[in-house]
């Protein structure tokens, strides 16, 4: 299948008329109802909208964790819908870095082990144990946790845990980072730190798509996409305030 003509080389994400429908008994729930979205390389996009607006569903589809019921998703010119299980895993492993509201670190492992994990699952360009640790240590140092390598998640603060999660998302050098309410469980000081790190990454060329419902957080992004009832209702900096007002 050929990529659409309008897709230029700079687009990291292209979503075309994506629908996601859940059939729960008699009720048909349309989580996504015809979404179109382009994200170009180097953008920092905040996705806003009230609960149930479909932003998390969209994130899961972007993260190749979920499939749309209809429509197409191109990641760097490749049709994700056409991919096999193995390729999807490779996509999540090397091309997308995912961070979550609840951090999702493995509790029984140290920070270092958690950060090493994506390299363990890498299929191409594998590196040995020693190199993996070197890379993981460098990643943890880059988020300011060089002195917390052997701490387990329950020995770290929320902000520190999220920084470990960011280090983990970075070790395979993805071109796209997806953040699902990354500051939702953090105090404002930690939130600022995390946003600082994300902005830094963005300046280094990593494309970021972030779900949030806090205007303070959204203002770090240069583009705000507002969703409602499974549709994009506004796109652009101006939409942020609108989105929040509607929410009220």
């Amino acid at each position: 299948m050929n990529p659409p003509e309008t897709l230029n080389g700079n687009a990291v994400i292209r979503i075309e008329n994506v629908r996601k429908v859940y059939n729960t008994g008699e009720v048909e729930l349309r989580a996504l109802d015809g979404v179109n979205l382009d994200v170009r390389r180097g953008e920092f996009v905040a996705m806003m909208g009230p609960s149930g607006s479909g932003k998390s569903t969209l994130m899961n589809i972007l993260g190749a964790l979920d499939h749309p019921s209809d429509g197409r998703y191109f990641l760097e010119d490749e049709d994700v819908g056409e991919m096999e299980q193995e390729d999807l895993a490779d996509l999540r492993n090397r091309r997308i870095g995912f961070i979550f509201q609840s951090f999702n670190l493995l509790q029984r492992m140290t920070a270092l082990q958690n950060v090493t994990l994506p390299m363990l699952y890498r299929v191409e360009n594998r590196v040995g144990h020693a190199t993996r640790e070197e890379i993981a240590i460098a990643a943890l140092e880059s988020v300011g946790l060089g002195d917390r390598l052997y701490h387990r998640p329950n020995q770290l603060s929320g902000g520190q845990q999220q920084r470990v999660a960011i280090a983990r998302a970075l070790v395979n050098r993805p071109s796209l980072m997806l953040a699902d309410e990354p500051t939702g469980n953090l105090d404002s000081k930690s939130s600022e730190e995390i946003m600082g790190i994300l902005q830094n990454l963005n300046r280094q060329g990593v494309t970021i798509v972030m779900v949030t419902h806090e205007a303070d957080i959204a203002k770090h992004a240069r583009r705000v996409v507002c969703m409602r009832d499974g549709k994009i209702v506004s796109d652009g900096r101006a939409g942020a305030q609108n989105c929040l007002e509607r929410k009220r």
Partner: peptide, 16 residues
């Protein structure tokens, strides 16, 4: 279950 979800989200294949 959640651990498995985390592993899959960072690129573990079913075979892994």
């Amino acid at each position: 279950t959640r651990e498995i979800g985390v592993r899959v989200s960072i690129g573990a294949r079913p075979i892994d």
